[in-house]
């Protein structure tokens, strides 16, 4: 994963609430077996409306999306994060995110920034014609008008983002601890690891 220290640039001043992952990427795009190319399907239903924000040349190619409460709710599809990444989005700012989406976003190097609704309202106003900066070093969102909003991020996620760490690689390095745990479970809860297999039970 590429390290992310700051995201700076234009922002889609959207603000929509309860944006579910079916809106971010409709189900018929999920038949792919790769991670790339989903940007074309991103927000397909929104984009079918004339005058939508995503096809407005003012915001085209913006790295930031500003949304309302509960962004990314619904299905666990990581395709939502892939679609955002494929359309060039590197950060989403919202008052709250669904748990699964924020995890998926982070794993794909997309920063999910939580700010209160007042800050969102202000950023939506600013983003009409000005860039926004998200800085993971100082943990702030700033604007050219001297606005400064502090946010928090899970320390582990912040470290992974800033250092571009591969979580699987990190965990594989803990192999001894995992084997030790498995050994203890084999003793205390043997039915966990000795699962009876599937052999075409009912055939």
């Amino acid at each position: 994963m590429q390290p992310v220290v700051a995201v700076s640039g234009g922002a889609y001043p959207w603000g929509a609430k309860n944006v579910d992952t079916d809106v971010i990427i409709p189900a018929h795009w999920l038949k792919t077996v790769t991670r790339t190319g989903l940007g074309r399907g991103a927000f397909e239903t929104v984009r079918s409306q004339p005058g939508n924000i995503f096809d407005d040349p003012t915001y085209a190619g913006s790295p930031i999306l500003i949304a309302g409460d509960n962004f990314g709710c619904g299905s666990s599809r990581e395709h939502a994060a892939w679609a955002l990444a494929d359309m060039g989005i590197k950060a989403v700012i919202a008052p709250s995110f669904s748990d699964i989406f924020s995890g998926n976003a982070f794993k794909n190097g997309i920063v999910a920034v939580v700010l209160p609704q007042e800050a969102i309202d202000r950023l939506i106003a600013v983003a009409q014609d000005q860039p926004i900066t998200i800085d993971l070093e100082t943990m702030t969102v700033t604007t050219p008008y001297q606005d400064r909003f502090a946010f928090t991020l899970d320390p582990f996620r912040r470290q992974c983002l800033m250092e571009g760490l591969d979580e699987i690689g990190l965990t594989l390095a803990r192999d001894t601890a995992i084997s030790k745990y498995e050994g203890a479970v084999d003793e205390s809860r043997p039915w966990i690891t000795e699962r009876r297999g599937y052999e075409g039970i009912a055939v």
Partner: peptide, 11 residues
């Protein structure tokens, strides 16, 4: 998500 599916498979 799929990255976590991969994480569980591997670890």
């Amino acid at each position: 998500g799929t990255s976590e599916v991969e994480h569980v498979l591997a670890t």
